[in-house]
């Protein structure tokens, strides 16, 4: 049970959002520097728990993502002055992270500020990093007990970008395959649909922090325990999860979507030809669907549960009767209206 654990932290360093967060008219303002000091205490605590715990920190910036720190990359020893009062690994960690965050923020040009935050890039990088750590190419001993227990913590301050739906879902499935737990710490803004799903599907916890002044305590109690301890100490999980998906055509988050019966692409309105697999749908079904669902859900469809209880996976709310896909039989492909499909992004 007591084995090393690896933690990858993804920091959302959106200049706009941090600016908003620091403003005094917010109920509990939190500046980036206060946040970083809380975070460093948390990271030190993770490193303090076990000598061979490892850490990697990634920053998601407008339009790009960078690795800020990792325990495996050699650091410039000379850059950090020796100090009798601080444990040296902590000192190196603190100095490096503070310095790289400052460097990265300085290097953001005015044109880039409005570019979307590259959370997915950082998430992908951290998954690659974990893959490298847990599957060392040169290790001959296949002793699984020696490998660290990996997890990812995403600290998010920006709202969802629906355009990244497919890539987020694909990252989630990679994380599931790598047995990585994704924890999400959401600050200030409204709940993120995609990150909620990420935490739920990988068995992590999603916590939206309303009182940033207690941030450190939240981090310590909820995100410090490695997955192996969480059998003993219960970490809060969300009881309501937004399972909605984004459509492939306009990248909108949809309550009711239409799924291509051949390739499972999601669309926000009935389309004659699937943009992904070029399947043509019969006019009759199309007209019927359009008639039944202009903007209001058809009668007989249960009211949409956007907050579905976590333990009951929602099913498609109604399935249009009709033939099977063309490849299988002579029947015509149909567009199926669904509330949300878990498998829709696996393609």
């Amino acid at each position: 049970m007591d084995k090393a654990s690896h933690l990858s932290v993804i920091l959302d360093l959106s200049p706009t959002q941090w600016q908003l967060s620091a403003q005094s008219n917010v109920s509990h303002p939190l500046t980036l520097s206060t946040f970083v000091s809380h975070l460093l205490a948390f990271l030190n605590a993770h490193m303090a728990c076990k000598d061979d715990n490892s850490l990697a920190v990634f920053g998601a910036l407008p339009g790009k993502s960078v690795m800020l720190y990792s325990t495996t990359t050699p650091m410039d020893e000379k850059a950090v002055a020796a100090d009798a009062n601080t444990y040296r690994p902590f000192k190196i960690l603190d100095t490096t992270i503070t310095q790289t965050i400052l460097d990265q923020i300085e290097s953001i040009s005015d044109n880039d500020v409005e570019a979307p935050i590259d959370i997915v890039g950082a998430l992908t990088k951290s998954l690659c990093y974990i893959n490298r750590v847990t599957n060392p190419a040169n290790s001959r001993s296949e002793d699984a007990t020696l490998l660290p227990d990996p997890r990812i913590l995403i600290v998010s301050v920006s709202p969802d970008q629906s355009s990244s739906y497919i890539s987020v879902m694909n990252s989630i499935f990679s994380a599931q395959k790598l047995k990585v737990t994704i924890d999400v710490c959401k600050l200030h803004v409204a709940d993120s649909v995609f990150l909620q799903q990420a935490a739920h599907l990988t068995g992590g916890s999603y916590i939206s922090i309303e009182r940033p002044d207690a941030l450190l305590q939240f981090l310590m109690m909820s995100f410090l325990p490695p997955p192996s301890i969480r059998q003993l100490i219960s970490v809060p999980t969300q009881d309501k999860i937004d399972f909605r998906a984004a459509c492939f055509c306009h990248k909108n988050i949809v309550d009711i979507g239409f799924v291509c019966s051949v390739c499972l692409s999601i669309f926000c309105q009935p389309v004659p030809v699937c943009s992904t697999c070029q399947t043509k749908f019969p006019m009759k079904t199309l007209l019927r669907l359009k008639a039944a669902h202009p903007h209001t859900p058809p009668p007989g469809t249960p009211p949409l549960r956007s907050g579905t209880p976590a333990n009951s996976l929602p099913r498609s709310t109604s399935i249009a009767p009709g033939g099977t896909p063309r490849q299988v039989s002579n029947g015509n492909p149909n567009m199926l209206p669904v509330a949300r499909s878990n498998t829709s992004a696996t393609r």
């Binding site: 007591d2 444990y87 305590q217 310590m220 109690m221 325990p225 301890i229």
Partner: peptide, 26 residues
């Protein structure tokens, strides 16, 4: 001594470490 506390903390079991961390900042 902070160094003694850190070393003793590391010798503790995983659950004990977590309990200490839960209480540390209160």
């Amino acid at each position: 001594k902070p160094s003694s506390c850190l070393s003793i903390f590391r010798l503790l079991g995983p659950l004990e470490r977590q309990l200490v961390m839960n209480l540390l900042w209160l």
